[in-house]
Simulated assay, not measured.
Amino acid sequence: MSACQTEIIYQNDDFVFTRCIDCCRMGLMFKQAMISFDELNFDAFRRYLERMDFEIEKYPFFDGLDRVVIETYHPDVQFTLLEEEFYRLKANVIEAHAQLQLIELIRKM
């Protein structure tokens, strides 16, 4: 995505969601992590997060804290999030999707 001309679709605290004007590749940055998606995979990731519930998915980690493991599209890369982090990411992804839909609706007018 380094050569892309990105537009910020949604930004909130430590979350930024962008899309390239030319190739439509999407970038999700949460804290220090960044994931890029095509439209289909972003929508699948959003649906995956929407189905997840921290209480059901949590695992106790070696430090005694419960975390949820977020799978990515690369088998060797996962994210582990504390409860507050998980729900912030989930809410931000849902809001970014809503903003993306709103932008698309406006552009079609």
Results as ranks from 00 to 15, higher is better:
M29D: 10
D22T: 05
A98S: 14
D63S: 00
Y48N: 07
L28A: 08
A44F: 15
C23S: 10
D76L: 13
F54P: 00
M1A: 11
S2D: 15
Q101Y: 10
I8M: 09
Y10R: 03
A33T: 07
N92I: 02
F15R: 03
I9R: 05
K31E: 14
M109S: 09
N92H: 09
F54W: 03
V69K: 14
Y48F: 10
G64A: 04
A91Y: 06
I8E: 11
R46T: 08
D53R: 08
D63M: 01
T6E: 08
I103L: 12
Y73L: 13
E50S: 03
C20V: 04
E71W: 09
M109N: 10
H74R: 12
Y59W: 04
L105S: 07
F61Y: 06
C4V: 01
E39M: 12
H74C: 13
T80E: 04
K58E: 03
Q5W: 06
P75C: 06
T6N: 07
F79I: 00
R46A: 14
L102Y: 12
Q5F: 12
I21V: 13
E84L: 14
L49P: 02
D66A: 03
L105P: 00
L65K: 09
V16H: 03
D38Y: 14
Q5E: 12
Y48H: 08
Q5T: 08
L65T: 05
I9F: 08
L81C: 01
S36G: 07
A44L: 14
R88I: 13
I106M: 09
I103Q: 12
S36M: 06
F62W: 01
Q11V: 08
L40R: 15
A96Q: 02
Y73E: 13
K31D: 15
N92F: 05
P60H: 06
E104A: 15
I21S: 12
H74F: 09
F45E: 02
I35N: 12
